[in-house]
Write a protein that binds this DNA or RNA. Structure first.
Lengths: 136, 136
DNA sequence: GAGTGAATCGTAATCATTACTATTAATTAA
DNA sequence: TTAATTAATAGTAATGATTACGATTCACTC
């Protein structure tokens, strides 16, 4: 998912092109891992010191709903990254030091015979944690 | 893991037998799914209205460290359950309505060729979410 | 360029969790 | 069995991320 594509998606859904949204996408496009919502906010403050929590959290949630960003929760913090392969279900290795991720294309739900009679499966979470080569 | 076994483990590590700890174990032994820390606290208040956050969180964390309880984080809340198969690595299906769990004995790490050269794997999380037969 | 609703600001509230000190209680050993 | 000692707890304040909301500003349409 590149930034151009994201703007197309936003336009399709009648979202406006604002400085804050530009800054969020610009920032996350440069990173290749998960970033906490608060850290995104810190970046926005460089250009816009008065940016409000409302703006940060609302836009990140909007982007996640539109599948522009991927979202996860780590250590009680919400984390976001640019969708690395939109539309294709996958998982991640996540570095616990720097947040960088590695794509894991396979999904445990395909490989594991999950024997759960009578239940209605709505979703799942699979993440691998550790240290990336740079942080070891 | 039954309550007797838990007390043995606690004794081995020189933890004292207190009313609060008895109540926590009694409560969680009766449940067959994850329960939020705050909900455990609510139960403690029945017998001990003045119980403090410190007591609730400290004991739950202690129990998790001793492998008496299993711990997870769901919707930004810490959740605990009696360890259903201590010492044997496994995962859970978790009902998003009532919190009840079903044991998943297999682990994706055994079945998936995770190709992550150079990384140091420290852990992983695999949970399946949905509705149990009673909550459908 | 004016009108309109979306987006934002500024700030307060919420909610789970953490922190800390004084007090109480469970165990140990005399 | 009691006294000593040390863990455990109560009570309460602080923290930190997130949510909420009225007032204002801004992006886009006509």
């Amino acid at each position: 998912m590149n930034v151009e594509k994201a703007w197309e998606t936003l336009k399709e859904h009648s979202f406006k092109r604002t400085k804050n949204r530009e800054a969020i996408l610009e920032f996350l496009a440069e990173r290749d891992g998960y970033t906490a919502a608060m850290d995104v906010g810190e970046f926005l403050k460089k250009d816009n010191p008065g940016v409000s929590f409302d703006t940060i959290y609302r836009n990140l949630a909007t982007f996640a709903e539109l599948d522009i960003l991927e979202e996860t929760e780590l250590n009680g913090e919400r984390q976001y990254r640019i969708h690395c392969d939109p539309g294709v279900h996958h998982h991640h290795f996540i570095c616990t030091v720097c947040g960088k991720t590695k794509h894991i294309p396979s999904c445990p739900m395909d490989h594991i015979a999950v024997n759960l009679p009578g239940v209605e499966i709505q979703g799942h979470k699979f993440e691998v944690y550790g240290k990336c080569p740079q942080c070891k």
